[in-house]
Simulated scan of single mutants.
Amino acid sequence: MLEVLTGSGLAFAAGLNAYIPLLVMGLLARFTDLLILPPAWAWLANDWVLVILGVLLVVEVVADKLPAVDHVNDVLQTFVRPTAGGIVFAAGSGSVTPAVTDPESFFTSEAVIGFVVGLVLALTTHVAKAGARSVVNLSTAGVGAPVASTVEDVSSVALTIFAILVPVLVVVFIVLLVVVAIRVRAQRRRRRSLST
């Protein structure tokens, strides 16, 4: 069960920012004993991969803070974030972390299932994030974009760390995600009813 929470938390984090969970996993695997990646995903700890992920993270963080550019970024990230979510779910659910001590018992030969599950989870988070961001940008004339982006980045970092160290806290994030999605949807319905 903890494997599923670890993978899910990492995939949800990738839906907010594709590069944060990838980079954190790679750095932890490379420089600590907190995370041991399965052999198929060991390339995440490669020096060149870490440098590329770091550069992509900087580009993502800057682009996501600028109104209008953040919308274009979200469109491009519709393909990147779910892919990253698939990777981190498959790698995270099969890795050895302080909370996951028997990765062999989960997805031993069906890594593609983990990838697809992570892809769907990250896509769900990405769609909710993009929808909420549209509301923020419209209601604040773009001024709220940097604040919302910073909250998303901090949430992605926290969720990644929780998923690896205390995966049970991922359940709290899932509940919060559902609450936010319901509120965004209700707000859209109110706007539509007011405009008609």
Rank of each mutant, 00 (worst) to 15 (best):
H71Y: 11
K129Q: 07
G26R: 02
S139V: 11
E60T: 08
V80S: 04
M25A: 12
W43Y: 11
V72K: 12
A141L: 14
F79K: 09
F79Y: 13
V96S: 12
V69T: 12
A145W: 06
V61H: 04
R30L: 01
T140D: 13
A91R: 01
F106E: 03
L27S: 09
V120E: 02
G142T: 08
A91D: 02
V116R: 04
V59G: 04
V135R: 10
N137P: 07
V72W: 14
L76N: 13
T160R: 03
T97G: 00
T125S: 06
V143S: 13
V120I: 13
V51Y: 14
A148C: 10
P38F: 00
T78F: 13
R133F: 07
L37P: 00
V136C: 04
L121D: 01
G144R: 03
A99V: 03
W43E: 06
V61G: 04
G92K: 04
V100E: 01
V96D: 02
V127E: 00
A130S: 12
T108R: 15
A99N: 03
S109K: 14
F107D: 11
I52D: 10
V112E: 15
V96T: 07
G92Q: 05
A99D: 03
G131N: 10
L138C: 10
L123C: 00
I52S: 13
V51N: 11
L57D: 01
S139L: 14
F115C: 03
V55H: 08
V24W: 06
V96M: 08
V58G: 03
V135N: 10
V116P: 04
F115N: 03
T78H: 09
G54Y: 03
D74E: 10
V88G: 04
V49A: 12
V88I: 13
V143K: 13
S93H: 07
E152H: 09
T108S: 15
A148G: 08
P39L: 00
M25P: 02
V120Y: 07
D64N: 12
V61D: 04
Q77A: 12
F107C: 11
D33H: 01
V154A: 10
D33W: 00
F89R: 02
E152K: 08
V127T: 07
P146D: 05
L23T: 03
H71T: 14
A68D: 14
G118C: 08
D74A: 07
L35H: 00
F31L: 02
V117Q: 07
